[in-house]
Simulated scan of single mutants.
Amino acid sequence: MEKVDLHMHSHHSDDADYPVAELIARCVREGVTTLAITDHNSAFSFAESDKWQSDTLNIISGIEIDCTFQGRNFHLLGYGFTPSDDFTQVHENFNDIQRELVPVKLAKLREFGFFIDDEHLARLANGRLPQEEQMGEAILEDERNANNPLLLPYRSGGARADMPLINFYWDFFGPGKACYQPVTYPALEEMADLIRDNCGIPVIAHIGANVKEEHEAILELMLESGVAGIEVFSSYHDDELTQRLYDFALEQGAYVTCGSDFHGRNKPKIEVGTCRYNSEQLVEIKRFLDIVSQ
């Protein structure tokens, strides 16, 4: 069956590591025929990826924007837009917010007795603002933390060792966790308008990763606020939630999309092109692709 993956990250995302060319080569190797690189708050990858367009590979412009809706933070995907200075401003605004939060996050981690080598963390960040996963990596690699029992779940054989870096993020920085820092991002409604103003289509990402209940009620409000589609097929959705989201999208007349959320070594269990959909569901995904490619 045709492989479509509309959610993946290149090194233009602070928490991913694949250069655009390597990411596209990986997609080709895995049989992906339509893709979008949706870097966090960055549209810079499209200028690089667009040159790989061919008769056998369809590449759509993409971005994933941190935004706030009714007091909760979500990720809004944008597709098929024309890159402009609006997206550069999104990137700059996000970096301004993160620049203020990084020292606060590091101070919280040090309260747990974790040793953090600032120079090592800077090397891992490679000139970018360090993200929570890189903080976890620096902590895990620091020999001074070798006997800290809080880190045992993330070491070889531990309960959280399957994806230690992203699990460290969720366990320490997820909503309600000890190092969580409340932050207000641009309003979802404003970001949906921005995407539309640049001829794109706004789609809410992996709702199952952001909330655990009342998915349909929240999505209905989002659709009323300018969101046009739902990422139904996601690495974060089990079969039951996927079917509910699919049925809901059809009932609401919303677009249906799919995405792996590939990051590279931060999420080693996630591979490009691994969205699970059947031939009937693929028809709905291609309906979206027909619109976004116009």
Rank of each mutant, 00 (worst) to 15 (best):
S156Y: 08
A161L: 12
A161Y: 08
D162L: 07
M163V: 07
P164D: 01
P164L: 04
L165V: 05
L165H: 04
I166A: 06
N167A: 13
N167V: 13
Y169V: 05
Y169A: 07
W170V: 01
D171I: 03
F172C: 06
F172M: 15
G174F: 07
P175G: 14
P175W: 15
P175Y: 14
G176I: 10
K177Y: 05
Y180N: 15
Y180M: 08
P182G: 11
T184L: 09
T184G: 08
T184Y: 10
P186K: 11
P186R: 08
A187I: 01
A187D: 14
A187G: 01
L188G: 05
L188C: 06
E189G: 03
E190W: 10
M191Q: 15
M191R: 15
D193T: 14
D193G: 06
D193N: 10
L194T: 14
L194D: 09
I195L: 07
R196S: 03
R196Q: 13
R196K: 15
R196D: 04
D197V: 02
D197R: 15
D197Q: 15
C199V: 02
C199S: 14
G200Y: 08
G200A: 10
I201C: 10
I201H: 03
P202N: 07
I204W: 01
I204E: 00
H206R: 01
I207E: 05
G208H: 08
G208E: 09
G208D: 03
G208M: 05
A209K: 12
N210R: 11
V211P: 00
K212S: 10
E213F: 06
E214P: 00
E214V: 00
A217Y: 00
I218R: 13
I218V: 13
L219F: 01
E220P: 00
L221E: 13
L221T: 09
L223W: 06
L223M: 12
L223A: 08
S225G: 05
S225W: 11
G226T: 11
G226R: 09
V227H: 04
V227T: 02
A228I: 01
A228F: 03
A228Q: 15
E231S: 00
V232R: 03
V232D: 05
V232L: 07
F233P: 00
S234D: 06
S235H: 12
Y236H: 14
D238N: 14
D239L: 11
D239G: 04
E240F: 03
L241M: 09
L241W: 11
T242H: 06
T242C: 05
T242L: 03
Q243T: 10
Q243W: 02
R244N: 07
R244G: 02
R244K: 15
L245D: 10
L245M: 12
F248C: 04
Q252P: 01
Y255F: 14
Y255I: 07
G259T: 05
G259V: 02
S260V: 07
D261A: 04
F262R: 03
F262K: 06
H263K: 11
H263R: 12
G264E: 12
G264T: 09
R265A: 08
R265N: 04
R265E: 09
K267M: 09
P268S: 11
I270Y: 11
E271D: 10
G273C: 06
G273T: 03
G273R: 02
C275F: 00
Y277F: 08
N278W: 01
